[in-house]
Design a protein around this nucleic acid. Structure first.
Ligand SMILES: Nc1ncnc2c1ncn2[C@H]1C[C@H](O)[C@@H](COP(=O)(O)OP(=O)(O)OP(=O)(O)O)O1
Ligand SMILES: [Mg+2]
Length: 479
DNA sequence: CTTCAAGCAAC
RNA sequence: UUUGUUGCUUGAAG
């Protein structure tokens, strides 16, 4: 497939799609003696459906395969994430990595590679708490991603159909739809669970025993263990990590699913309907008593077998009508999915921020920002079947925009620019902007311009939440 | 179907 | 500045 007709690293015009800026299998050998790449394994690995061709004890060779690392680098690069403790950025990484690749790969194969600690960054959670991120160096994000691409086809096919978080071809929408189907089957009570500080509290020995069930390559197991114990730099001081998997490591999400896979299997064994999204899972029952019993027994299972902590504040037994999950709620017993109250409040708050900030950028940019926010938001919540709600929010946003224009209107200079942009002939606009006529006239003009504005917004595709909603009809199929 | 850019959401 | 997985929306280039 690959031929070595073009050894140059320069991006020649014509074939930018073939350009590879990280690693060149055919010309990297300038500093080595032998040919580094084996012919058999380069094309063997692919992240998708086709199963790994062979044995579990040689998984590390699949990890370090050229094609796998290429794909891993594209993934890491795509995120454009901030650097880890070593300060190497995405832009400078290829030059840093190229001379070290052969050495690193050999260390990975020898089982002598030692990951660097991660960088601690504390960010705010929506609920007011703090989230402790662990940001690995780029090189470790690359290696972890390369591992993920091998572990995914090994583990993911065996995961439960009720597990939806962090998995390819699964989504929060799919989870919400499954909740909807389960409730409609008559399960109108739910034991809602959330785990406390989930990633931070992962027990290494429990996790590693689960990983070892399908990974027999000792080098790979050892490497994963070393990633868990790599430590964390907190303001320049190295702290050990004898607990937890870093929030920010590419490997962590699939590890968390491998850990909780036993929970899924246990719930399936008990014949309990459930839906899980990461550490947020709901077990369904037909009576409050049964849900209460499930809450207790599953809580015990999680504590005893997985040695994880159930978040008592976020976990409780609910009627399905008061159950909020993944930003949705599930009214009555119909086939509807609604936007949760919290999500509506967040939406309105965000719109207020965009439209309401007085100083800064002008109206045009704010509307552009608002437009793409509303579009993206609708892309997620458009699964909901609340035409009335979206119409209400639509009117509410228009009212806010009108208010913004009123404020702008008080400044004559902006008044003129606005009129011109809205399509009023230039001379007329200038004349009007200078006029000191009565308030009624101004109001009349504003009213007509608001009409123009609304028209413009629709033509630009900003609003009419209803139109956006209508276009997302396929999203709501089979809901 | 793939790649890139802007963004939204869940965790 | 804020990392990661996954899904999606719009636009551009194939
Ligand atoms: N922005 C993020 N970046 C990386 N990992 C995340 C992020 N958000 C969530 N996660 C992962 C790590 C979390 O442990 C896990 C579950 O999320 P979440 O329940 O919101 O927080 P938490 O379980 O760590 O704390 P809490 O005790 O408040 O529930 O999902
Ligand atoms: Mg949690």
């Amino acid at each position: 497939m690959k031929n070595k007709e073009e050894p140059s690293a320069h991006s020649r015009r014509g074939n930018p799609s073939v350009q590879v800026d990280l690693y060149f299998p055919d010309n990297v050998g300038t500093e080595t003696t032998g040919s580094p790449s084996r012919p058999g394994d380069t094309a063997a690995t692919r992240a998708g459906q086709p199963a790994l061709s062979n044995s579990l004890e040689s998984l590390m060779q699949h990890v370090v395969a050229d094609a796998n690392f290429e794909a891993a680098w594209k993934s890491v690069k795509r995120n454009r994430g901030a650097p880890g403790p070593d300060g190497i950025t995405i832009a400078e990484f290829p030059d840093w990595f190229r001379p070290r690749w052969l050495s690193i790969r050999q260390q990975l194969l020898d089982g002598t590679y030692r990951p660097d600690p991660v960088r601690r960054k504390t960010i705010d959670k929506p609920d007011g708490g703090k989230r402790l991120l662990g940001i690995p160096n780029i090189v470790d994000r690359l290696i972890q991603q390369a591992i993920v691409q091998i572990l995914t086809p090994v583990f993911d096919p065996h995961f439960s159909d009720s597990s939806h978080g962090f998995r390819p071809k699964r989504s929060a929408h799919g989870a919400a739809k499954q909740v909807r189907r389960t409730v409609r089957r008559g399960y109108r009570f739910v034991a809602d669970f959330d785990l406390s500080k989930f990633f931070d509290r992962v027990q290494h020995d429990v996790l590693m025993s689960r990983v070892a069930r399908r990974v027999r390559d000792k080098r790979l197991l050892q490497l994963i263990g070393r990633y868990l114990r790599a430590g964390v730099m907190v303001e320049g001081v190295l702290q050990p990590t004898d607990l937890g998997t870093p929030q920010g490591g590419p490997l962590s999400p699939i590890l968390s699913n491998i850990l909780l896979d036993d929970l899924d299997k246990e719930l399936e064994r008990r014949g309990l309907p459930f839906v899980r999204y990461a550490d947020d899972f709901a077990v369904f029952a037909k009576s409050p008593r049964a849900a209460e019993r499930i809450m207790n027994s599953v809580g015990r299972y999680v504590a005893k077998k997985l040695r994880l902590v159930v978040n008592e504040e976020k976990s409780r037994v609910l009627a399905c009508t008061e159950f909020e999950f993944l930003g949705f709620s599930f009214p009555k017993s119909r086939a509807n999915i609604n936007v949760s109250v919290k999500s509506i409040l967040r939406f309105k708050q965000r719109v207020r921020e965009i439209t309401g900030r007085s100083r800064g950028i002008s109206m045009d940019r704010r509307l552009g920002e608002l437009r793409r926010y509303v579009r993206g938001w609708m892309g997620y919540f458009g699964i909901a079947s609340q035409l009335k709600l979206f119409d209400k929010l639509d009117q509410w946003i228009r009212r806010r925009i009108r208010m913004c224009y009123w404020k702008q209107w008080k400044r004559p200079k902006r008044r003129r620019a606005m009129l011109i942009r809205l399509g009023v002939p230039r001379r007329q606009a200038i004349r009007h902007a200078r006029s000191r006529k009565g308030h009624w006239r101004m109001a009349k003009t504003i009213a007509s311009n608001v009409g123009l504005t609304n028209k413009w917004l629709q033509e630009e595709g900003l609003l009419s939440l209803k139109t956006l909603w209508a276009q997302l009809a396929p999203l709501r199929r089979t809901a």
